[in-house]
Computed example of a mutant assay.
Amino acid sequence: MSHGLALDVNRIRREALQTMSAGPATTRYGLDTERVVSVLNDVVATEVLGWLRSSRQALAIRGENRSEVRALLDRHAEQEMRHAVAIAGRIKQLGAQPNFDPATLAQRAHTDYSTPNDGELRGMLEQDLEAARIMVSTYREVADWLGDRDPTTRRLVESVLVDQRENADALGELLAV
């Protein structure tokens, strides 16, 4: 008995040619594209706000013995901007426009931007840990909501979730010291 895969490449080619005029492949899935884009734009806002917060806090940290913390916050900031750009790219793939409007970023984000005073290292780390845990929870819910109806977007959100979970763990370790 053969368990090999037999592909009918001619049939697949015909089907691909027939669907080319139908627009992007992503328009044929079972989710409300406008709702998905709205949710993703909120994720973009959250990541941009995280980039702003982490960047500001990394700049605010003083003292040579805090270079490890500064480097961690710089890495988080870089990650958050990469996340925002990746999610914005997915929004474009879905045929919509990413929303980077600074006038509405704070209202759309899942986290806030309040920052402790410069030099209040513990307060900064606690705020970042809270934000990371909020992102972990909200991104998990977004991924679950997407489910198998949009596996491409779900995998992207899950990859951001993995990074945020690692960030939360690293921040928690710093606070435990």
Results as ranks from 00 to 15, higher is better:
102 P>N: 07
26 T>N: 03
104 T>Y: 08
123 G>E: 12
129 L>K: 13
33 T>D: 09
114 S>H: 07
154 R>Q: 15
126 E>P: 01
118 D>S: 14
67 S>E: 13
53 R>S: 08
91 I>V: 15
33 T>A: 11
50 G>T: 12
123 G>P: 02
152 T>E: 15
150 D>A: 09
26 T>C: 04
156 L>P: 03
48 V>L: 07
105 L>W: 04
45 A>G: 07
35 R>A: 15
36 V>Y: 03
149 R>W: 05
64 E>D: 12
105 L>R: 12
107 Q>R: 14
67 S>Y: 05
56 R>G: 14
46 T>F: 07
53 R>V: 09
89 G>D: 14
56 R>N: 08
76 H>R: 02
62 R>M: 06
57 Q>C: 05
18 Q>R: 13
132 A>Y: 04
38 S>L: 11
142 V>W: 00
107 Q>C: 00
62 R>S: 12
110 H>S: 11
85 V>E: 10
27 T>N: 11
138 T>I: 07
99 N>K: 03
87 I>G: 05
75 R>Y: 00
29 Y>V: 06
145 W>D: 10
25 A>T: 14
149 R>H: 12
60 A>N: 04
79 Q>R: 07
23 G>M: 09
156 L>R: 02
76 H>P: 00
26 T>Q: 10
133 R>A: 02
72 L>I: 01
107 Q>V: 08
23 G>Y: 08
19 T>W: 04
81 M>S: 00
66 R>L: 04
121 L>M: 12
71 A>W: 00
55 S>R: 10
18 Q>I: 08
107 Q>P: 00
98 P>S: 05
65 N>R: 14
117 N>T: 13
104 T>K: 03
69 V>F: 01
85 V>I: 06
107 Q>K: 08
94 L>F: 11
68 E>H: 04
114 S>W: 12
37 V>T: 08
143 A>H: 07
136 V>D: 01
137 S>K: 08
66 R>Q: 13
17 L>H: 13
107 Q>D: 14
30 G>L: 11
159 S>V: 03
92 K>A: 06
135 M>Y: 02
144 D>V: 11
151 P>F: 09
35 R>E: 15
56 R>D: 04
157 V>L: 11
82 R>F: 03
136 V>R: 02
44 V>K: 00
157 V>D: 03
64 E>I: 11
117 N>C: 01
58 A>T: 09
139 Y>T: 03
109 A>F: 02
94 L>P: 03
76 H>W: 05
68 E>W: 02
24 P>N: 11
156 L>C: 06
43 V>G: 02
108 R>E: 13
16 A>N: 15
47 E>G: 06
73 L>I: 01
39 V>M: 09
75 R>F: 00
142 V>I: 09
42 D>T: 09
51 W>S: 01
57 Q>R: 07
82 R>A: 10
40 L>P: 05
78 E>D: 12
48 V>S: 06
50 G>I: 02
32 D>Q: 08
80 E>W: 01
142 V>K: 01
118 D>L: 01
141 E>N: 15
54 S>K: 04
59 L>P: 00
147 G>E: 06
43 V>K: 03
29 Y>Q: 09
27 T>K: 10
56 R>F: 04
49 L>E: 06
